[in-house]
């Protein structure tokens, strides 16, 4: 994107090296928001569209459509400074996507939006993802990443912590945990050789099993000794994985 020069190596997309035409394929939303405050909404959108090689008339059509879609259609001719912060963010979001880029780079796209607008933006992003666009989303909110992203690249202190698809990461870092709700005395399972760790609470327990043990086998071995009312496999959240990995390092 021309912002940071690669220290080494080459960047290519779909086998093709990145060149000047790549500019028009990319949509970028930086974390710090701000537009030309004294300029009109439509002028700002059209300026960025022209820089992406869009024709003015088509850009105008699209701009009006998106402004309406994000329910800020009435501000077409207002100055940026007259808009609320949330609405300014919407305008900036439009500048990032107007030229229908095939790659979107979004840095904390939801910050500054209220829950309704966050949902609106999420819906649009999911639409884009389904339609085959590449979306790179950078965020501190692990739950957002978990819900929206297919592939994850966790970074701590500028270094890679782990990467891969969500299910891979969960498999890799999530330990083999189950939750049991029961009646009776469960303490006997501490003597099981494949039980790594047990936390027994008043009416439920969390049990960590060895990696190669199937939870169903474990269930079979306890089912005739106590009365199990609930049994589930606990999936670790991305948040927990992140914290665990950082702690380990």
């Amino acid at each position: 994107m021309n912002i940071i020069k690669p220290t080494k190596g080459k960047i290519s997309l779909g086998g093709k090296p990145i060149d000047i035409n790549f500019f028009n394929e990319i949509g970028y939303l930086p974390e710090e928001r701000g537009l030309y405050k004294k300029s009109k909404v439509i002028d700002v959108i059209l300026y960025f569209a022209e820089l992406k090689n869009m024709s003015r008339s088509y850009a105008k059509e699209e701009a009006v459509r998106w402004l309406k879609k994000l329910s800020i259609g009435k501000y077409v001719n207002s100055r940026i400074i007259e808009l609320s912060k949330g609405n300014q963010q919407k305008v900036q979001f439009i500048t990032a996507i107007l030229h229908n880029p095939s790659i979107l780079v979004l840095d904390e796209p939801f910050s500054g939006f209220d829950p309704i607008n966050q949902q609106e933006i999420k819906d649009i992003l999911i639409e884009f993802a389904v339609s085959g666009k590449i979306i790179m989303l950078s965020t501190h909110q692990m739950d957002t990443a978990e819900k929206l992203c297919a592939d994850i690249f966790l970074i701590n202190n500028g270094k890679e912590v782990c990467s891969g698809s969500i299910s891979q990461i969960k498999k890799q870092f999530g330990s083999n945990n189950v939750k049991i709700e029961f009646e009776g005395d469960l303490s006997f399972i501490r003597s099981f050789p494949y039980v790594v760790n047990v936390n027994i609470y008043s009416n439920y327990a969390e049990v960590q099993l060895e990696e190669d043990i199937q939870p169903s086998d474990f269930l079979r071995s306890i089912i005739d000794k106590i009365n199990v009312t609930h049994f589930s496999v606990i999936e670790p959240t991305l948040n927990k994985i992140f914290l665990d990995v950082i702690k380990k390092n």
């Binding site: 970028y28 930086p30 701000g34 030309y36």
Partner: peptide
């Protein structure tokens, strides 16, 4: 200075060459 402070420059520079 304005473009630099609100990172607009990053959008510009990812749209056209310096």
């Amino acid at each position: 200075v304005e473009e630099k402070s609100n990172k607009l420059i990053e959008i510009l520079i990812s749209s056209c060459s310096p």
